[in-house]
């Protein structure tokens, strides 16, 4: 029963990447590198991270560049897997790591809605039911039937965000994407996310905009060089973070 309350459990997770200074892509190169020392470095990105995020929480991950925020987010989505420890998630999960990943430039906006939403695991019927909401939210109007390659980057982002926000996920992982789009649309996205939060969805949010973080989240986790430096009330953590980085 206790498990049900938790959306995301991260247990003693370590993650390191092999950074190949000259990655051998071919057998010839791999064979050669058996003889000479393989020039690679192990880079420890996350070191023994444990955290629990309960259902309905809105959590911000903050930290300087390279502190492991995005890696932690990718581990939660199961795009990559930890070297040690484990990550457990409960409930349908949507990630907005990079907007419009998987958009097909030659297909129309409408076709891409179907394709993109199906990547998130929706069935045809479910997409049909949401289609109007998605198009309306994106404010693309008549452009929705034009090929996506003709879109401006703002339109692209609006379409992608509209799909991701309308798939009814229980867990939403957002990686610093609200920076695109005009003031009006940013505002709209924030409002939508607040609405989702009030519906009891779980949110993990990576951002460098402390204003947005404070608006949206009640808890913040400060990552520093692969460790959790501080975890607690958003206002306190942000304050300490700003003091240290200033």
């Amino acid at each position: 029963m206790k498990k049900e309350q938790n959306s995301i459990v991260v247990e003693n997770v370590c993650k390191s990447f092999n950074v190949y200074l000259d990655k051998s892509n071919t057998i010839k190169e791999s064979l050669l590198s058996l003889f000479k020392r393989n020039r690679k470095e192990k880079r420890q990105v996350l070191d023994d991270i444990s955290l629990t995020i309960s259902k309905g929480e809105a959590v911000a991950l903050i930290g300087v560049n390279g502190s492991g925020k995005s890696t932690l987010l990718k581990l939660m989505t199961k795009i990559i897997y930890p070297n040690k420890g484990r990550v457990i998630t409960n409930g349908k999960l949507t990630s907005l790591l990079e907007l419009g990943a998987g958009f097909h430039p030659d297909f129309s906006g409408r076709e891409n809605i179907y394709f993109n939403a199906s990547i998130f695991g929706l069935s045809r019927k479910e997409i049909d039911a949401r289609l109007n909401d998605i198009i309306e939210f994106s404010e693309l109007g008549e452009y929705i039937d034009n090929p996506v390659r003709t879109y401006s980057s703002g339109m692209y982002m609006r379409l992608a965000f509209s799909v991701a926000i309308n798939v009814d996920a229980e867990i939403l992982l957002v990686d610093e994407i609200l920076a695109v789009g005009d003031q009006h649309f940013q505002e709209k996205c924030l409002n939508k996310m607040k609405e989702l939060r009030s519906q009891g969805k779980t949110m993990v949010f990576v951002s460098h905009s402390m204003g947005q973080v404070k608006q949206l989240c009640d808890r913040a986790i400060w990552l520093h060089e692969g460790h959790i430096k501080e975890d607690g009330n958003v206002n306190e953590v942000v304050e300490h973070y700003l003091k240290e980085t200033a």
């Binding site: 989505t77 199961k78 795009i79 990630s95 790591l97 990079e98 990943a101 998987g102 990547i119 998130f120």
Partner: peptide
Amino acid sequence: SNILKKVYF
């Protein structure tokens, strides 16, 4: 690879 790196499915 483009999608594989960005989205889980």
